[in-house]
Design a protein around this nucleic acid. Structure first.
Lengths: 131, 131
DNA sequence: ATCAGTGCAAAGTATTTGCATATCC
DNA sequence: GGATATGCAAATACTTTGCACTGAT
């Protein structure tokens, strides 16, 4: 079930604003302000906040935190689970994924006996361009 | 070189406020408000902000983000690198570490050819008490 | 037609800053 | 003594909320 179907099933409506916001996030994680700007402020800032909160609540979007203290909103795609590498120098962001990761989580789960439902991994360093 | 020695070498001073704030963070990650409260508001809120910013800049402290949107400040201890497990239910936080982790980072580094300097891993799920 | 969502403005929080005073080295 | 820090209050930035109106179903 996709994002909008899920929202509909809960009695929420698919508005033009919601579609546009979701569309914007598709390319890469963005801050509230960036989303607002890139929609030419045609969508009210309060609505951007409300929409993102709704998306997060419905697990269509997740919040990620790079080192800069700003929250960014990213589309959640089960089939494309990945992490981020942030360059400490130029602040560019790269998507990362690894096969070993599942093992790590399993390993932690076994040892700790905790039920791990989700995780977030952020990497920092120097990117190719800045080396 | 410890935190204060590092600060001194950069011309910063060791004040009572800074010592008390660092002391507070030692036990566990805390929000600005929690630190301010636990010092009985004897240290001005603006000073707490300024001090934490200074500590973060000097890598004595790092910011961590659990799911609740609140920033928490944690003492950085090279010798005791760890991650956090946050219970989605009771919001309790547990420290986690794993041997496999180094391998994961190395793996990613090899494949991506990026220079990874640091990373942050946050885990979410259900803790022992809430199962 | 109905009820959820939007825009707008105002209220609430969170964080930063300017400046006079206090304090570390 | 001199430069760095602090406290206080004001300024700025960020986020939420109430309400009348609009629009999706």
């Amino acid at each position: 079930m996709n994002t909008f179907a899920k929202l509909r099933s809960k009695g929420h409506r698919i508005t033009d604003q919601r579609e546009r916001i979701l569309q914007k996030i598709k390319s890469h994680p963005q801050t509230v302000e960036e989303i607002h700007e890139s929609l030419d402020k045609k969508v009210n800032l309060a609505s951007v906040y409300r929409t993102l909160k709704l998306f997060v609540k419905n697990k269509a979007v997740r919040v990620i935190n790079f080192g800069d203290g700003k929250k960014r909103y990213e589309l959640l795609d089960e089939k494309n689970h990945h992490h981020h590498f942030t360059c400490n120098n130029c602040k560019s962001i790269e998507d990362i994924s690894s096969q070993l990761e599942e093992k790590l989580i399993e390993d932690i789960q076994l040892k700790s006996k905790l039920k791990i439902a989700s995780h977030s991994l952020e990497l920092f360093g120097v990117c190719h361009n800045c080396t």
